[in-house]
Design a protein around this nucleic acid. Structure first.
Lengths: 182, 182
DNA sequence: TGCCAAACGGAGAGTGTCTCCGTATAGTTC
DNA sequence: GAACTATACGGAGACACTCTCCGTTTGGCA
């Protein structure tokens, strides 16, 4: 990639990240990202053919954070319920940083053609590692995709309604207790 | 209301209902509803000032269905868990009829200014009646709004991914078990 | 039949995503 | 450092959508 192209790409992602964080996915237009990055719309669209692909690039480090959160939860010296709640709380908290991310990633679960397919795999794999780590503490037959959808749906609601963590916690507790073996 | 206005209004709602059911909220344009109902865009917008207000009119009978589903669940001769699962299953099933409804109604929870505010009240009240009906079988401190958000979020995911009922059932079971007293 | 408030409908404003293509430039070659 | 070419740029504008304004038509009543 040519040096000017790389410079522009970096600036676009940087500007877009700030805009998305401040206003959420829907409220940011591609035109304003282009203006903010001081490039033309054509340049923006050569680097990122759709608005969603730009969002995907903005969420680049998200995968690392998800994996780190699972590691943190599994390495805790506590009950399975505490480990589960730690992971769920961390995940829900991650989404307050990127308004609209929960809904989009959750909606893309099971759609390999989505720009977020990579993010989805990371997320489902994280839940699979959690299942493996918690071993027999969970109800039998529970699947990673089910946890992903349950928590993703709840996170999307919390994100959309801008619920404070203390309002989300009781709902996470319901999901956690439901996931633990009866 | 003048006779021609009433005729047009009825036809618009009828056409819109068919379109929304077939393609979902986002994929239907106001222009095609106007064309389908054989009226001009101006006429359409005098009857329904926004697309969401049109959707609200299409979902008119939804409130009755929700209340009927709660009644049905509470009148069952079964365990609290069976009653709960019956209601959750009925609610989730209701949404396959109107693609996009779950996400919109759930997103409007707690926003009195939304065109769906009336639908939200109905829905939260239904969950409150469920709580009152199931009495002490539920975990202490659980609130109607929490159930509304939990189930709404899950329903939105199921709707969006077009999950078959047998895929939704295990997730509903998790929520149900989580809601029942430990 | 004549009147007029009510309703109609379509052109178009405003806003968004995304494309096409003539122009400019980075990086290589002599 | 000049010429060359592949690469990248940027802006006009195509297209789709929601929603508005306003001149025209019509239903219902006196």
């Amino acid at each position: 990639m040519r040096a000017d192209a790389q410079r522009n790409r970096d600036k676009i992602v940087e500007v877009a990240r700030a805009f998305f964080r401040a206003k959420g996915f829907d409220a940011v237009s591609m035109d304003e990202v282009a203006k903010g990055a001081e490039v033309g719309p054509g340049t923006l669209y050569r680097h990122f053919p759709t608005k969603e692909s730009l969002y995907d690039a903005v969420l680049e480090s998200w995968a690392e954070k998800v994996n780190a959160a699972v590691d943190r939860a599994l390495s805790l010296n506590g009950s399975a319920r505490e480990q589960l709640m730690t992971w769920l709380t961390d995940y829900a908290a991650m989404l307050t940083e990127n308004k609209g991310a929960a809904a989009r990633i959750t909606a893309a679960l099971g759609d390999p053609g989505s720009p977020f397919a990579g993010k989805c795999r990371t997320y489902v794999n994280a839940n699979q590692r959690l299942i493996d780590g918690l071993d027999s503490a969970l109800r039998p037959g529970v699947e990673a995709m089910q946890i992903s959808r349950l928590v993703g749906g709840l996170a999307a609601v919390a994100d959309n309604s801008e619920l404070p963590p203390e309002s989300v916690a009781p709902m996470l507790a319901v999901v956690a207790d439901g996931l633990l073996a009866p």
